[in-house]
Design a protein around this nucleic acid. Structure first.
Lengths: 138, 138
DNA sequence: CTCTTACTTGCAGACCGTTTGCATTTACCA
DNA sequence: TGGTAAATGCAAACGGTCTGCAAGTAAGAG
């Protein structure tokens, strides 16, 4: 099967290994961004023997190919989510229980041009996360 | 001298120690957010003997009192900046050289209410950082 | 189909930012 | 000035992430 993802892998000179398939399957089974440990736990549960290091290496690779997004909530670890087929969006995390919810919005498109004029940087991305208390914890 | 900061410390039951004064002095000498290691290096340069652990503990404490802001660029470490007297703002960092520039803007005030309606979270903060290439690196 | 080679993986261990425990020191108030 | 809670330094642990290297494997060439 030639999915968009396998196509990108091939284009990047990457092989479609058993580990890679399993990691992608775990990622695609989660709507919300997951930690490396969570991906690894998902592999264990699926009875796929893949080393934690391999998960790190593959997530880094998938991120470089633009197939996966890294999201950080200043938890001391990163989270990852698949990009394919999803609109650009952001998240909110509960300060109490850590729950994460998708926010299908982004107010920053217009701002980029303004920032480029002000700073003379060429802007190519942004990180935006919200924090608060979820209905259960507030 | 009774500055706004010393007042806040006293209100929090905190003592104004030599280490604390020195740490605050380093922070106030920097407009841009600095790492813990940079604060510590600043103390060494100022010939003030303060342990790295003490820097960590004080920055955490200052953050809890709301005197200091934590900023993360997904570098594997946090950065800190003093809040006092500065307007709420964000930053952009160069992906190549790591240079950081202040952005004296925030487009998110209106959005908060919308998010609260959509998610039923009570929103109490956000992290917004931009990335790109600075004039020297682009 | 098998050969070949570049890409991948697992394992062990290093690395680095951050945190903790505990004994000692210090700021501050009565 | 003396007593006490808070703060510090040191050593050591911790957790997430990365690296080196030898062994394993996907995938195109023939």
């Amino acid at each position: 099967m030639e999915t968009a993802i396998t196509k990108s892998l091939k284009a990047g000179g990457k092989k479609l290994t058993k580990a890679r398939k399993a990691i992608l399957a775990v990622l695609e089974g989660n709507t919300l961004p997951v930690t490396v440990a969570e991906v690894h736990a998902g592999l264990v549960k699926a009875r796929v023997g893949v080393d934690l290091v391999t998960v790190y290496r593959n997530l880094a690779m998938l991120q470089e190919l633009g197939l996966v997004n890294a999201v950080g909530f200043h938890e001391g670890q990163m989270r990852y989510e698949v990009v394919h087929g999803r609109a650009h969006h952001h998240h909110i995390q509960c300060r109490s229980c850590g729950k994460i919810v998708d926010l299908m919005l982004c107010p920053l498109k217009k701002l980029t041009k303004l920032i480029e004029e002000q700073t003379r940087f060429s802007v190519d991305g942004h990180a935006l996360e919200f924090f608060g208390w979820c209905p259960q914890c507030r």
